[in-house]
Amino acid sequence: MENFIVTFARGFGTGGKEIASMLAKDLGIHCYENRILTLASQMSGLDEKLFLDINERIRNNGGFTGFLKGLPRSRQYIARNEKFVSDDRLFEYQSQIIRNLADQESCVIVGKCADYVLKGRENVVSIYIEAPRAFCLERTMQRMKVSADVAAATIENTDKYRADYYKYYTKGNYWTNPVNYDMTLNSEKVGIAGCVKMIEEYLVMKGLITREQILSEQITKGEEKK
């Protein structure tokens, strides 16, 4: 069976990142998010000599996939007052990495306009996760340990940043437009685990995975815990 890719876009506080991570674990594949941006940032600011050096390291580590695994995971949130500033060169490197990953392996990719970058590929499923503001607010307060005012500002400004980012790099498209995605799920109504199950069922329906694959991974994880 050929590679398949699941892309995720999500509102802040919806649990979209958690859903993406759970899905990847269930299917035994990698989930990529901030490591893509880390590598793209490194590559976009390199002079020619350093650029050649990092490309050599990528080749020696089994392509972008192997190289990304060694990069640190960023746990930073977008600052509440951060404004979107375009960086076309950075986006092009990022898109190159996303296309390379899609060519090499089955994986989950969070954000980065991955649905747009991989548009037209039959083996790509794009998901948007949404939820009511009250749900996102409560979840953000608990996870970030902040007040309601800080959580509300974080959600508002982060979602605006993501919307502006998406609109700019997709040439005017809207981030929340359901036409962009295979599925739009409400994580409050469906539940975090429920969203994972629905996406898995859709992947089976599309012929990208089998139920036997899911069961096999679940059995493997269960044995590893013993």
Rank of each mutant, 00 (worst) to 15 (best):
S126V: 09
S126Y: 07
S126F: 05
I127H: 05
I127E: 06
I127A: 07
I127Y: 04
I127W: 04
Y128A: 12
Y128V: 10
Y128W: 11
E130D: 15
E130Q: 15
E130W: 14
E130N: 15
A131R: 02
A131K: 03
P132F: 02
R133P: 04
R133Y: 07
A134N: 10
A134M: 07
A134W: 02
C136R: 10
C136E: 00
L137D: 01
L137C: 00
E138Y: 05
R139F: 01
R139V: 00
R139Q: 07
T140W: 02
T140H: 02
M141Y: 00
Q142P: 03
Q142K: 15
R143V: 01
R143L: 00
M144W: 01
M144D: 11
M144L: 11
K145P: 01
K145S: 06
K145R: 11
V146M: 00
V146P: 00
S147P: 06
S147R: 04
S147L: 01
A148I: 01
A148W: 05
D149S: 15
D149T: 10
V150S: 06
V150Q: 09
A151R: 03
A151Q: 03
A151N: 01
A151T: 10
A152H: 04
A152F: 03
A152V: 05
A153Q: 09
I155V: 04
I155S: 03
I155A: 03
E156M: 06
E156S: 06
N157K: 08
N157C: 03
N157H: 06
T158Y: 02
T158E: 04
T158V: 07
D159Q: 05
D159Y: 01
K160T: 11
Y161C: 04
Y161Q: 07
R162Q: 04
R162I: 01
R162V: 00
A163E: 08
A163N: 07
A163K: 11
A163L: 01
D164T: 04
D164E: 13
D164H: 06
Y165A: 13
Y165H: 12
Y166F: 12
Y166P: 00
K167P: 09
Y168K: 08
Y168F: 13
Y169R: 06
Y169M: 03
Y169H: 06
Y169P: 02
Y169E: 11
T170H: 10
T170Q: 11
T170C: 13
T170P: 04
K171H: 13
K171C: 08
G172L: 03
Y174S: 14
Y174V: 14
Y174D: 13
Y174F: 14
Y174G: 08
W175F: 14
W175A: 09
T176R: 14
T176M: 13
N177V: 05
N177G: 06
P178G: 11
P178C: 09
P178T: 15
V179P: 12
V179H: 14
Y181C: 08
Y181Q: 09
Y181K: 10
Y181S: 07
Y181N: 10
D182K: 12
D182N: 15
D182L: 08
M183G: 08
M183R: 15
T184H: 14
T184Y: 12
T184L: 15
T184C: 15
L185A: 10
L185K: 14
L185G: 11
L185T: 09
N186R: 04
N186L: 06
N186A: 07
N186F: 01
S187D: 12
E188T: 01
K189T: 12
V190E: 09
V190L: 14
G191S: 15
I192G: 09
I192T: 15
I192K: 10
A193T: 12
G194R: 09
C195N: 08
